[in-house]
Structure formats: C-alpha cells, structure tokens
Nucleic acid binder design. Sequence first.
DNA 1: CGTAATCTATACTAATTTTGTAGACTTTTA
DNA 2: TAAAAGTCTACAAAATTAGTATAGATTACG
Lengths: 145, 145
Amino acid sequence: MISRKCKYAIHALVFMAKKPTNKFLIQEISEACSIPRKSLETVLLDLKRAGILGSKQGKDGGYLLRRSPAEVNLAEVVRLFDGAIAAVPCATYKFYESCDECEDEKTCSVRAAFLQIRNATVELLKSDTLESLVKTEKKLKSRNL
Amino acid sequence: MISRKCKYAIHALVFMAKKPTNKFLIQEISEACSIPRKSLETVLLDLKRAGILGSKQGKDGGYLLRRSPAEVNLAEVVRLFDGAIAAVPCATYKFYESCDECEDEKTCSVRAAFLQIRNATVELLKSDTLESLVKTEKKLKSRNL
DNA sequence: CGTAATCTATACTAATTTTGTAGACTTTTA
DNA sequence: TAAAAGTCTACAAAATTAGTATAGATTACG
C-alpha cells in the first residue's frame, strides 16, 4: 500500500494537470480533492522541493505545475513519498538492504520473483504520466454518460 | 513492501518445498532460514490455519507441507499475511475502502492506474508457486557454478 | 509603509502497526 | 510419566504515519 501522503500528492497533481489554468491555492486544492489542508501543505512542499511544482509566496501567490504533465510520472511520485517500489528490500536498487533468510542472494528465487514484479510495476508506473491520467479520466467520463 | 512475517513465511515454505523429506521441526526451519524461533512459530501456525501446512504435536512431531508445491502460490501467502495486494484501498476487492480524493470512483484515473498494476501483480504472484520457485533456484544455482 | 494573503518551517502529539518475546498449556510418544 | 514437540494468549517495545499547532517569511497593493 502506498502512504496516504503519496495518494494525496497524486490526486493533487492530477487535479492541477486537468485544469486549463496553472495557478492554485492550497485551499483550493484541499477543498477540491478533500485533502486536510495542513497535510496537503507538507505534501505540496515536498513536490516543490522535488522540482515538480513551483510556488509563489505572498499575496496572489500559489502553486503551479513546473513541468508539462507528460513529464511527470507516478514512479517518480511514489519513489518521492514512499521510497522503494519493490515489495522486498533486497529487490531494490537505491533502497537496497540484504536479507538474512536466503543463503545466497544471487540464487534466491524469492528475490528473483519479487524483482520481476518490481520491474513490471515500475514500467507501469512510468507509463502513467499526469497527461495519460487526465486522458484516461476524460475517456472514462465520456463512456459513463 | 510486504511485512517481515510474510517474507518469513515465503522463505520457510520454499525451504520445505525443496527438501525431499516432508517433516520439519520449527527449530530446524528457524536455523536454516535465520528466522527468530518465536516469530516463526506464529507464522507457521498461521500457515497451518490456512490449510497450507499440517502439523503433528508431541514427541516426534513437526510441520509438513499439506499441499503439493505446485498448488501453493505467493498471491495466497501475501494475502494471508498482508491482506490486500493493491497499492490503494479503492483498487482491491476483498479489502475495498472508498477514498475521498476523487469525485467519482468509476471515472477516477488514479484508481484505474492502480487497478492495472494490481492485476499485473496478482497474475505474477499467482504464477509463482513453490514448485516454480524451487525450479528457479536450481536453475540459478547451476548457472552460477 | 502597513496589512492581509499566502506559502514555509519545525516540532509535537496521537494513533496505528509491526515485531518480537514471555510464559503457561496441550499433546504425543517411548 | 517424563521429555519433546507444537499451541495459545497477551504484552511490550519500536517504528511509522497522520495530523495539528504555532510561529515565520514573503509579496502585493492601497
């Protein structure tokens, strides 16, 4: 399971990507996505530090998408908030940790199995960009009329 | 990430599946897989309650695999210990919970994306049986000589 | 210049989950 | 009947997560 903050981030980003304008108040996103205001603040700050969002302080300030929606994918967002995508620490690259349960990691079939799942998941997450998600949403909506 | 207990369970099961005999003491598995004895006890009990393992009490007792290794897959084990496989509660079946962040779940692209990942993951986990894992391990070992 | 609007930062609390362990109990066999 | 095994319940320690409080910094604009 991804963390709640990660889910908040994804929903906020999709919300921003699907609007024609590119300026958003925290309050506005909070209400539109039903995300507690204070939690959203920290989430947006993290997205800003990661270079995905930009912001302007002071009166008439707000947040904005800093990249085109096609250039933000879910793999990056999930990694940012939850770290490793793999289900097992020995099947990750950046967040690698060895485990005690296998004699030899190189021949551990459990690791091999979870590596395969990790790779498949990463591929799918990478293909989910804000742009593709917005498109999907439009399709689903027109189908449901 | 799966829980440590789940990882313990998987390693213990693979260990049992790859031995020619079918009788194991808790102590024996604990040492072979470097799993704390007491934690392993509760894990094995859970596996027994789920019908995957059987046991015999008393002197000369022990645990045994109750099903053929081809009939135990990782999807079942992961569900048993960690519940839902999906990364998001609205993309599960048995452990479903609605979320507040989307207006309409039926047209929510975030949910659609995570549903796709969940389905792919479940397919892969189902294809990982104890039998296939043991085979993989043999292959990896012969390759590494 | 001052004030209101807005984002920034840090730290704390409460809740939850996870992990491991203790310790008494039951069953079986020799 | 004693020794060897699994069974059960409950607790404690640790880690993680989520949310909130509080104060600060920055900007626009009259």
